[in-house]
Every structure is written in structure tokens, then in C-alpha cells.
Design a binder for these strands. Structure first.
Lengths: 124, 124, 124, 124
DNA sequence: GTGGTCTAGACCACC
DNA sequence: GTGGTCTAGACCACG
């Protein structure tokens, strides 16, 4: 069972998007694996203090992307293979890092200056 | 006069926010300096093909942050000193880089892995 | 004994409905005849890998329609006469074909275009 | 502006799915074209007597499939090219006709019997 | 109990 | 006014 307990929603944007991202990052990080059981909508709703409909929306997005499988009356499970994990990894990197790089470029930083600045701000 | 012509709004989020960010990044990059003249709201609206209300909102935000000064019926000018530029630089770095770092951390990357990945994706 | 082994549930909708339809189509096709013995609920549950409750629901529906007869502790048998078979045949045609016809009509196809398209897609 | 007035929801399945199908069929039939303006969520909600959230869900699906484009504060428009229209046409045919063909096959009908039966049931 | 749909209505961001 | 998110809660289908 995937744990959402430590999941603090300090992120920005819609809640359902945060949940989707949390799951994707968990997959890339290896915390979430193929065959893992998702918490039921009701349970996660209570855990996060979020409306069941919002959870449902997140689960629906994950299902549309083929990351989980849901069947009425049955629990939902994570369905992954290596290719999918790799695709998610690249998608996240593209989103997170790509946006930042173009931002820094627009700010006039060179590659070296940018990397130096990031290194300085990233305190383990 | 600041040029917005090359400004492509492929960015995400509200248009007014994109305009504000574009100006701030221009300041940090040195493209925009103290005393520069802002295009009139009407002109910029036409240039970018954006609703005048949206332009107005962006100018209002820049004004609230003390980055430009507008007087009824007169042109708007950029008002900067070194301290302000530095504050903007730090704010942008915090926003752009900070968000990415926490994202990469959640993906399970260590500082070294993260920096290596960024370096690989940042093709000058 | 009716064979469900080759029954692949790639169909859409509820599983119990798929089972009911499978039986009805088998009757129309002549694969299932009056007096045939139904597999026990337990056996069919194992064969199809489906929850016993779901099988029970399907049997109940078939029983309600007078297609099978069950007696506590005894086997279930198919009970048919010509009129029933004909009624089922018409019901299936109505459901399967009627839905498609109204769909094609809504897509703007004329009778001739529709028939031509179906003929082209139906590769024996 | 696309008209939904004659749209009677006698269809089966979720309402949002019926709306999506109605739009797709309208596109294939030529009633809906590139650049057409979609009714606002609120308006369509009132027209069909359906909750705005349900409309939103349908619009979201259409947007996810690249059939319409929505921007906050602006109206939603249909965005189509020939390739998309053809893809939709094939998708509908596959769904509507394919399901029926496999049903008739399971009922033991040959291609000729099936076509004959359909022709008989399709009264212009 | 679990997934899925729908209603009713509020609230916010955007243009 | 328009799109988008969220809550609260009901209801149904499914297993």
C-alpha cells in the first residue's frame, strides 16, 4: 500500500495535479512499484482531508495515463513496466528542469553561471 | 523603449504573470534598465494580441512592486536601483530554482545526481 | 454441458452482463439448446476467475428471464422453446443492431452509406 | 455556435460521454466544423438541464483529445483539421460497427445473414 | 467496501 | 461573463 501520510500539499496548483505528481515522483524515486495497491478513494480522501471527488479526478488522470488500473468494486493497482517508468522520469525532468533552464536563460545566465547558482542554492 | 516583440508567450500560467516575469527577467539580464520607457498599455495590447485588461493588470503588479511608475496620462517608466535589481534577482532564483530543487528531491535524486542531470539537459 | 472456456471477456460493461449476453448469443447461434446443463456457480467462478457473487447475479438474471431453471442444491438447466429462442433473437438484434443504426444516423450516414461501410468493415 | 437544442439524451451511459459522442458525431456529419464556437458551460448546462460539472467533464475530455481549445476567461472553440476528422470518423466506426459485428458473429450469423438482417432493420 | 456518476453550489482566476 | 477547482453529499453499479 502506498503511503500518502507524509505527503504535504504545500505544492502549487490544483490538488489533483499535486497528487498525480506525487505518485509520479514516487515511481521515479522507487517508492512506488508495479503491482502496488492504491488506497481507496475514500481512505485517501480522509487521509489528506480532501474531497473524494478531487481524489477521483487524480486517480482518473493516473488511469488515463496508464499508470494505475481501476475496476468497479475492486481495488486499484499500479501497473508499470520499465518503459513507462523511464517515460515518466523523462517527463518529470523535462517539466521541472526544462522550465527552470529556459527561465534562467531568459534571465541572461550562461550555462556555467546557472549551474554554479543552482549548486549554491541546493543545500542537501 | 523596451521591446516586447520577440516575447513569445509559450510560458504557462496567467498571461499577466508571464508579462511580469518577462520584465523581471529582462531586468536581471540587463536588457531593461533604470529609466527605460514602457510601451503604452494600448500599444502593448496590440503587439501581444492580448486583452487590455490583462496588460493593465500586469502594469499594476509591476507598479505595486515599485518596478515601474505610472502617472495618469503620461508614459510609464522603469525605476530601479541596485538593491531592487538584486532583490529581483534573488526572488527569481528562489522561485525558478527552488521549485525545481524540491521537485527533484521528491523524485529521489541526490544533490550530485540532480546537478549532473541538469548539466546534461542544459545544452547551451 | 455448456462450455465457457473459450469465453474471453474482452467485452465492455459489467461482467455479469457479459455472461448473460454470452449465453443468449449461444442460444441464438444454436450452441446452447434446451435441456443443456449449466456449470455450477462455483465451477464457473473458478473457470472465469470471477467473483462468485458476479456469477450468481448472472444466473439470477437468466433465471428471471426464464432461460434457466435452478433448484436449491441441484444443477441448473437451460429451458427453451422455439418462441423463447425467437424472442431472444429479436432482443439481441434490437440491442446490437438498433444501437448501431441510431449511432450511424447521428453521424450523418444514409442507409446506403451505412450498409456500404458495414460491408466493408465486416471481413468474414 | 453549435446547437445542442435537438440533442435528446436517450443514449446510454454517462451523460458526459453522450455529449462527447454527440460532438464527435456532429463533426463526422459536418454539422460541427473547425473554428466553431462552443456554448459556454453555464449555457449548455441550462440548455440540457444538466449540472455544470458534468458539462465541464465532457468539455475536458474533448480538450484532452484536442478537439476543442479552452482558455480561462475566453470562449471555447473547435479546433480541427482533416486528419483529426478522419481519425474521429474511424474511431466512431470502429466503436459502433465493430462492437455490433462481433456481437452478430457471436450470435452465429454469417456475413451475408448479418448484412441482410441489418438492411431489413434499417428503415430509413 | 470500492469505483463511478451526478447534483448543488461556492469560489477563484482570467479576460 | 467564462473557464477551472473544490466541497458536500447522494446514488448507483460492481464484486
Amino acid at each position: 500500500m502506498i503511503t500518502f501520510e507524509k505527503f504535504t500539499m504545500d505544492d502549487s496548483g490544483p490538488i489533483y495535479g499535486q497528487i498525480v505528481r506525487y505518485v509520479k515522483r514516487g515511481i521515479v524515486a522507487g517508492r512506488i512499484e508495479n503491482g502496488d495497491e492504491m488506497p481507496s478513494r475514500r481512505v485517501l480522501s480522509a487521509t489528506l482531508g480532501v474531497n473524494p471527488n478531487t481524489i477521483q479526478k487524480a486517480y482518473r488522470m493516473l488511469e488515463d495515463e496508464g499508470i494505475i488500473q481501476s475496476h468497479a468494486g475492486a481495488k486499484s493497482y499500479v501497473v508499470l513496466d520499465e518503459a513507462k517508468v523511464e517515460a515518466i522520469r523523462e517527463e518529470l525532468a523535462e517539466n521541472d528542469i526544462g522550465a527552470m533552464i529556459s527561465a534562467l536563460k531568459q534571465s541572461g545566465l550562461t550555462r556555467e553561471e546557472g549551474l554554479e547558482l543552482i549548486g549554491r542554492l541546493w543545500k542537501e
